[in-house]
Design a protein around this nucleic acid. Structure first.
Lengths: 141, 141
DNA sequence: TTAAATGCAAAGAGTTTGCACTTAG
DNA sequence: CTAAGTGCAAACTCTTTGCATTTAA
């Protein structure tokens, strides 16, 4: 996710570039993996104290509408990630809370199994997948 | 999930059976599939108007602690289901919002694939699985 | 009797909204 | 200029918590 490109895309759609919007886009673009509205709000406010949370939410909404980011549901609410990134699933340890990502290609077999049984076309990237990470699993045995 | 048995289990643990608790347990036991704290609150209040939402939350907490129910994360917050029920995953259509359940055995192949790649032991029943239901998929093509 | 359970009110987190003000273009 | 964008305050949803009161056993 490249801030310059996103800003160019926004301008092309006729959006105005305010200092708040630039800071928010840069924060999102600079984040690795996923980032939540509250993190963006906190980080942006350390530079521009006046930026309001509602502006952050409105910016995420706009970017999602433009197909630039997507959101996923993790244990504690929504997180966003670049829509262009390699599809990945979110593995969240229910014991220690650690998160890891895994490429979504590995989920193809289950996609086909579910699709074959029910006709439902699953998208494993939208909700996190809960479970036990390797360490907690080992420790529990 | 059988209300009488749950009540018996509560009594055996030394809990008191108040009219509120009975009504809440009956509502949960009477629900098919999953049910949310807000639904329980709404339905119970139609019989006992004075029941407070906090009592419903405390009851769910107690039942989960006793292993009688488990919770899962769906698009709009937590839902509970009987812990004894056949393990099932929640398929939620991102287009029409419809929910369907599917036995979790079908997810075994992916469990093994993820476990083999990352050591992570996934539990697909804890978060819903998003996607397109058969109807919306057909309509989109 | 007495401690568990409840109701209530408040708080807290996360998110949305209406409206008046600001400002990019 | 002027409408898009913003800040602010309020509201809303979901959930939790402290405390005084009620009540099952």
């Amino acid at each position: 996710l490249n801030a310059t490109e996103v800003i160019a895309a926004l301008k092309q759609r006729g959006h105005r570039m305010t200092s708040q919007r630039v800071a928010i886009v840069e924060e999102i673009a600079g984040a690795k993996g996923h980032i939540s509205p509250r993190e963006v709000t906190k980080n942006v406010q350390s530079k521009l104290p006046e930026v309001n949370a509602s502006t952050v939410y409105r910016t995420f909404e706009l970017l999602e509408e433009m197909g630039i980011v997507s959101h996923a549901h993790l244990e504690r609410g929504a997180e966003y990630h670049g829509a262009g990134e390699i599809d990945h699933v979110h593995l969240v340890c229910s014991n220690c809370g650690r998160e890891q990502a895994m490429e979504a290609v590995a989920t193809e077999p289950l996609k086909e199994a579910i699709s074959g049984h029910t006709g439902f076309a699953p998208d494993f990237t939208h909700f996190a997948i809960s479970g036990l990470c390797a360490e907690c699993l080992a420790r529990s045995q």
